[in-house]
Amino acid sequence: MSIDYALVQAINTLFYASILFLIASGLSLIYGIMRILNLAHGSFYMLGAYISYTAAMLWIGPTPAGFVAGFVLSLAFLAAVGALTERILIRPLYSKPSELQLLLTFALMIALDDVVKMIWGPEYKSFTKLPWGYMSIGHYSVPIYMLVVIASSTIIGLLLWWFFAKTTIGKQMRAAAYNPEIAAALGMNTDLLFVSAFALGSALSGFAGAMASPILTAYPGMGTDAIVLSFAVIVIGGMGSILGSVVGALIAAIARTVMVIVYPLLEVALIYIVMIIVLLVKPTGLFGKEIVERR
């Protein structure tokens, strides 16, 4: 295996990890603060993918401006969708058993698959062109676009870290994530906290979809695969931890790359094996703390 090939694979892996990190950190944030496993979170990723497709391929064209517009649009749109979902759909269920919240997000998930089919049709949507050209590594050529995604994801990761480590509201959110009763004790406005966590988490997922689709295409059902992988990521990293999502995403991406090269038969399976081992050895994940259940 040549150095060039290894480098190309490394970029692929980092690209994949970047996407996974963005979805998973949003899921982790929402679970952390609200103790809701949002099964529609993957569908938000799918919506982001389609919005970016619409902006870049249907409206503006596959220029850098079109792509950037797609990113911004999906970020904004999914923030709004997230906020509305929390306000209108999930809020009436807070006093009910938590399974009902899970089921509602499941209903939303299957409905959104068809919403996408209604608007964009059932076929795969491929992007005909990537912006910013290609660079060559040996006789391989790698889209610069992938590097842009990796960089953006890194910046977002750093912003999240800054937000949770340095700002007052971020610190309070993090405290609330480990123990929901703290939120009330700190006198936080939980209404605002929940809606902003849901909006931010959903926006991250939508953004991930927008960045992923030019390479991975957009298709109905892409959300159901994404959500279960992000479960694996946040379980491995530790639920509610941003650093955990980074490490979990890297592990998932590396496992995938290695298996694709070494033993493709185990490609799908390996991540779940890792997930099981982590859960058995350190159930709170590599970077998680003990989760206090909401009573």
Binding site: L93, I110, A111, D113
Partner: peptide, 12 residues
């Protein structure tokens, strides 16, 4: 799937 999602959500 859309119709079903809506019905299931209402039932919740």
């Amino acid at each position: 799937l859309f119709v079903m999602g809506v019905i299931l959500a209402i039932l919740v």
